[in-house]
Amino acid sequence: MASWRISGSRALLTAGVALTAVFTATLPAQAAHAPGGVDDWGTVVDTKDCVQADAWLVRVKGLGKIIDTKLFQSHYPTTPQAPKQHAGGRELINLAPMGIGLGKVSALYSRAMGHAHPATTSGKGDVPARGEVYADAGGAAVDIGLPYIQNPAGGTQLSPFGVHVEGITVSAYSQPGKPVAFTGGAARGYISVAGTRIIDIPPIWAVNLGVRIPEDYTQAPLALATTNEQVTTDVKGNPTKGPNGAYKYDPKATSGYVNGIHASVLGTDVADVTVVHAAVLRDPKITDKFAVAPRAASDRAGVPARPLSKSCAPFAPPRTAAAGMKDTSSCW
């Protein structure tokens, strides 16, 4: 089995895994995709608010009867299709939207919050914080196949293209006066083809880690994948550009998104899947005035300016945090 390897500057995108009670096919009635139809960021809705957040667990395209589907999508502000959060238990959930097997997931979550950030300690409610925006998504175990074909003999799935990850998590966080901060990673994982493990995913993911499958350049690629893809955007969700008009990471950007895994696959059926996604939009012209110079304000104490861990979302699990979630007023 080969090892995961950095593929270079072009690595991009993706994301979304996980979770709970209800999965939501995103057909956003109020959705207003970013100009140009680019919605890599997520679902940009019409709102007069100056912050917006989006997170989902799995997004699959081009697979059998599964349409472009975002499973367990959360959004701020909430929409009929996307509540503020999803949170699942430890049990395995069989993902079979539209009657077609997609895989199995457990202990999954997604959250999207505006004018607030999560509590730093498990069990506490979310903390109101004017102008802040936060999103995260993750899960304890994710097994996705395109399509998912269980191995009758047990073990690695027989899917033409399969992704297995454990402890996957991504987050995006933007505070007044500061650029957007991302985290992304997983404890372990692998990509498989027809029951054979092709590539091991290491525990620490470099940003925009990419791979071709198979890695052997003498062979034609069956799939391209990127992990921990971090993309900065403008306040409308469009990727930031350099002077030549091409995408360029903007270290000062206040908006953007991070994807856990994004894979584009040929083979017998065209498919595109993203596993765990977190995205935030924040308009600095309106929200930077809420910046607090020394971070000693009572409702912010203890919140890190940037996530402390490269592999873990910096805040409490959503179920415990959910209890204190409140709607906060717009900053307009």
């Binding site: 593929s7 072009r10 690595a11 991009l12 995108l13 993706t14 995709h33 970013a34 140009g36 139809g37 680019v38 919605d39 890599d40 395209k61 990419g210 071709r212 799939a223 391209l224 994948a225 990127t226 993309v231 990727p239 550009k241 008009g245 091409a246 995408y247 994004h262 894979a263 584009s264 595109d272 993203t274």
Partner: peptide
């Protein structure tokens, strides 16, 4: 509007 993996949106 999603670019494939390892392809920049622009």
């Amino acid at each position: 509007g999603m670019a494939p993996a390892q392809v920049t949106p622009t």
